[in-house]
């Protein structure tokens, strides 16, 4: 399947959307995760709350995923 330049740029845009949101998520989860582990080290009952906060930033990557997906649908 040969791609024209326009499709290539769209594909790149999708990649950037994915990579950027993934990095943002990683950074946010690093911070929250460290805090959650810290709290859990003292009190295991905080596991439930910890996991809620820990995974909240994941939504960022899902946005990236959705945008990338919409972009890719332009190519075909």
């Amino acid at each position: 399947m040969a791609l024209d330049i326009g499709s290539g740029i769209v594909a790149l845009a999708a990649a950037i959307a994915m990579a950027g949101s993934a990095m943002a998520t990683a950074w946010a989860e690093k911070v929250v995760g460290a805090a959650a582990v810290g709290a859990m080290a003292e009190n295991e009952a905080l596991f439930g709350k910890g996991i809620v906060f820990m995974v909240l930033p994941e939504t960022i990557v899902l946005f990236g995923f959705a945008i990338a997906f919409l972009l890719l649908s332009k190519i075909t």
Binding site: V32, A34, A35, G38, A39, A41
Partner: peptide, 14 residues
């Protein structure tokens, strides 16, 4: 800071 402060906060509750 996130780790230490969260842990200290949990300690404070004890």
């Amino acid at each position: 800071y996130p780790y230490v402060c969260a842990r200290v906060k949990a300690k404070k509750r004890l």
